[in-house]
Nucleic acid binder design. Structure first.
Length: 538
RNA sequence: GGACGGGUAGCUCAGUGGUAGAGCAUUCGACUUUUAAUCGAAUGGUCGAGGGUUCGAUCCCCUCCCCGUCUACCA
């Protein structure tokens, strides 16, 4: 199969400097080196421990891997078959009960059993804890439209898919031990084995030393820690699971993984697993180590501290595409991930979108939106920035979208939700921002006697005003109501301040005439009534 | 100890082998019969230090200094 791509882009791709292209070119070189590299389906992998839930890093890893995959598809003109495998290590033993899940007592009974054999603590909807988390992971990935194939470790082991490689591991047992042992402390060294038998008696994943092995029979022997008896078990068919670094290597070889990125924290593990993969006769995948995120103060993010930013927080105030942009930019630099970068990133995204259309092939390939949108970024020219929209929404006290759109149109005449759907989407995010960050800061107060009279006068004037009165005319009514109720030119400012504080809960606000025009005369009169009878004060 | 990242304007950060950029902050101006917002402009930098390559280095190479993160038990 081939893909539809502009010849100019294709020509520019071979020298494109954007990091996904650099990665794709490394991958191509790998395939040229390897014996079966020209025919095989090219495998990209991302992996998950199923004891946790998907998070912003999960998104980042899949998004970044997909960018490399896309660049690869373009460089090879779609002639190579590629797959992205999202692998869940769900045969791992439950080593401790997570504190953030229900049914703690029940889970304690299943300690050390494979997660795919532990009942779902949340409901009876899924057959196991792992199945629940796997479903969450898939729903998460699906919500972004990622193109991937889900693999369960338990299914891979029990189906026999790993058997050939497990037998190679058994044959290369000494080599594997020699790779791992020097990296371990004395205590662990004494008990280490790349194979973790699943106890046929208790179902637990055992961390016990092997006392014998039989390459011909494909078995290992260990001592049951509770009964003291020798147990001989096959290494195939799911009777054993590999210890983590060996497992990673075994998986690479068994599945033929060509590319897998990992966080900086796993650099040493990648090195070790790569050695093991070679000991198994395989070639470790091309890799990429991305940096971890920091919080606002440049400190490391820890779940217990709750610093940094969650993916839900990001997606509450901005689109997945903007988050993908953040993931695209400088993946090897430790970036701070905190609230203020959201509007900044959104505006950068909008600028990249706007400039894309007029760029030549070379520039397009350096433009992040090309990578975020698989080479087909949506057309967009935004008349106002997201930062301005956020200012607008708070300055205008626009609590509903209609009013906000009114203010938007003052900046961008002729813009509508229909002809600017992207802007309409931003308006929703801006309103959410208003609701969460601006509205809670409002402090309404009661009007004093003079203010009551002036507000009543304003209400009466508004009642008499034509429905299509202009903002300027309405502004004049506001001035008149003030002047005829004791405010002088010098104290007029007090009058406006009172309006804002009583009606909008803030000591400053929009030009009030314009506000009335957009908010509506009737709505404003209702607002005045509420202000006067104290309904706005909570 | 090992690995990686960073050091560019007051702050947060972009950037390229060819006279240094943005946002915010600051200052001034425009608009508005209150503010805010908005718009325009200005100010502001030995691009961590030293050496090398080059006609030319903030960028490439080497050395050093400072800051930060990861890693050595488990996945």
């Amino acid at each position: 199969m081939s893909i539809d791509i502009d010849p100019d882009l294709l020509a520019a791709a071979s020298t494109a400097k954007a990091w996904p292209f650099e990665e794709a070119r490394r991958l191509i070189k790998r395939l040229e080196r390897n014996k079966d590299g020209q025919e095989k389906t090219v495998i990209f992998e991302t992996g998950y421990g199923p004891s946790g839930l998907p998070h912003i890093g999960t998104f980042g890893e899949v998004a970044r891997t997909s960018m490399v995959r896309h660049a690869f598809n373009v460089l090879t003109e779609g002639r190579r078959k590629t797959r992205l495998i999202c692998f869940s290590d769900d045969m791992d033993g439950l080593r401790k009960v997570p504190s953030n899940v229900p049914n703690q007592e029940m889970l304690k009974e299943y300690l050390d059993k494979p997660l795919s054999r532990v009942p779902d603590p949340f409901s009876s909807e899924h057959p196991s804890f792992a199945a629940h988390n796997n479903a969450r992971l898939r729903a998460f990935l699906d919500s972004f439209g990622f193109d991937y194939e889900f693999y369960s470790a338990t299914e891979c082991y029990t189906s026999g898919m790993m058997d050939a490689t497990l037998l190679r591991m058994l044959a290369a047992y000494d080599d594997v031990m020699n790779i791992i042992l020097p990296t371990l402390g004395a205590e662990r060294r004494a008990t280490y084995s790349p194979f973790l038998p699943v106890c046929p008696r208790t179902g637990k994943v055992l961390q016990v030393p092997m006392i014998a092995r039989n390459v011909e029979a494909g078995t290992v022997t260990y001592v049951d820690p509770e009964t003291g008896e020798n147990v001989e078990t096959k290494v195939t068919g799911g009777a054993v699971k590999c210890q983590w670094k060996a497992d990673w290597a075994m998986r690479w070889v068994a599945l033929g993984v060509d590319y897998e990125m990992a966080g900086k924290d796993l650099i040493d593990s990648v090195t070790l697993s790569s050695k093991i993969a070679r000991a198994l006769g395989g070639t470790p995948p091309e890799g990429f180590n991305y940096e971890l995120f920091l919080d606002e103060k440049g400190e490391k993010i820890s779940k217990s501290k709750g610093n940094g930013l969650t993916i839900d927080e990001w997606l509450t105030y901005a689109s997945p595409a903007s988050l993908a942009l953040f993931m695209f930019q400088k993946p090897k630099t430790a970036k701070r991930l905190y609230f203020d970068i959201i509007p900044k990133t959104v505006d950068e995204y909008l600028q990249f979108l706007a400039s894309y259309e007029g760029q030549d092939a070379k520039q397009k390939l350096e433009n992040p939106v090309w990578h975020l949108h698989d080479g087909h970024p949506p057309a967009a020219e935004l008349p106002i920035s997201f930062a301005l929209l956020l200012n607008l929404v708070s300055a205008s006290n626009a609590e509903d979208k209609q009013v906000l759109w009114g203010f938007i149109r003052r900046r961008a005449p002729g813009a509508t939700a229909e002809n600017h759907p992207l802007l309409d989407e931003l308006a929703d995010y801006a309103l959410t921002y208003y609701r969460d960050f601006v509205a809670p800061t409002k402090q309404f107060r009661a009007a004093n006697e003079q203010e009551r009279q002036a507000l009543s006068a304003l209400d009466a004037a508004l009642a008499a005003a034509p429905a299509d009165a202009s903002g300027a005319d309405l502004q004049n009514l506001v001035y008149e109501a003030g002047k005829s109720n004791g405010y002088t030119k010098e104290t007029l400012r007090e009058w406006f301040k009172a309006i804002y504080e009583v009606l909008l809960g803030s000591s400053q606000g929009p030009r009030f005439g314009s506000f009335v025009e957009l908010y509506g005369i009737d709505n404003t009169r209702t607002l005045i009534a509420k202000g006067l009878n104290g309904e706005l004060i909570k």
